[in-house]
Amino acid sequence: MQIDLEGRPRFPPAADTAITALRVETRKVPIPPHRMSPLKQHWPKIYPPLVEHLKLQVRMNVKARAVELRNSKATTDPGALQKGEDFVRAFSLGFDVDDAIALLRLDDLYIETFEIKDVKTLQGDHLGRAIGRIAGKDGKTKFAIENASRTRVVLADQKIHILGGFKNIHIAREAIVSLILGAPPGKVYGNLRTVASRMKERF
């Protein structure tokens, strides 16, 4: 630093602050053992959206049971890595590839996870019956909740994962909570029909 004739400090010109070097970030998404076979089976459908759409580098690490994602010079979207991670995580939780791909295409989709014990502590047969009430015969109740609330629901033992928009998740969660608390499916269907018709009026 130099001082000019008027006593003011003179600083050397600032270096070019444009960041030329790319900051390479890596994300590792662990895959549960029961989802490894579906991952291998659906891999030809999983990696193209990540590589072609998000321009990420991807590899399946079978030894570590994980999918590794990395950005590159070709990656243009700053949120690509997060979107890719959300997509792979959705698949690892049990959602179909097509449903998980929606997370890449739409910005206002989320996944909410909660456990049956968060709502009510149930054990043994009571727990089994609660899961049965949510699924319904041949999965009919689950499909009814999905269709009315425009969400996707995955029942993974005691965990429930819901994929959808914020308000839609709220509707699906309310229906599932009612079933866990012992509400008869008929009553829950009725409430869902009312909510679904209200949603149609709104759009």
Score class of each variant (00 low, 15 high):
Arg23Asp: 14
Lys45Arg: 15
Pro48Trp: 11
Gly79Ile: 06
Gln2Pro: 04
Thr121Ile: 12
Thr113Tyr: 00
Ala175Leu: 02
Asp125Leu: 15
Thr17Ser: 14
Ala156Pro: 01
Thr121Pro: 01
Ile145Arg: 04
Asp138Ala: 10
Lys28Gly: 03
Ser197Glu: 15
Gly124Val: 09
Ala66Arg: 13
Arg202Ala: 12
Asn147Pro: 01
Leu127Met: 13
Val119Tyr: 02
Ile131Ala: 05
Gly139Ser: 11
Ile171Lys: 06
Gly136Pro: 08
Gly124Trp: 04
Arg8Glu: 13
Val51Lys: 09
Pro12Arg: 15
Ile31Gln: 03
Glu85Tyr: 06
Pro44Phe: 07
Glu52Met: 07
Met36Glu: 12
Glu6Ser: 12
Thr141Val: 15
Arg70Cys: 12
Phe11Ser: 11
Lys40Arg: 15
Glu6Leu: 14
Val119Lys: 02
Asn191Glu: 12
Glu201Met: 13
Ala14Met: 13
Glu25Asp: 11
Asn191Phe: 03
Ala196Leu: 06
Asp16His: 08
Lys200Leu: 13
Ala64Thr: 08
Ser92Pro: 05
Ala15Asp: 12
Pro9Thr: 10
Thr194Lys: 13
Leu106Pro: 00
Met199Ile: 12
Thr121Ala: 09
Gly165Asp: 12
Gly186Tyr: 11
Asp107Trp: 05
Arg152Ile: 00
Ala21Thr: 15
Phe114Lys: 01
Leu69Arg: 04
Leu81Arg: 08
Asp4Ile: 08
Leu69Ala: 03
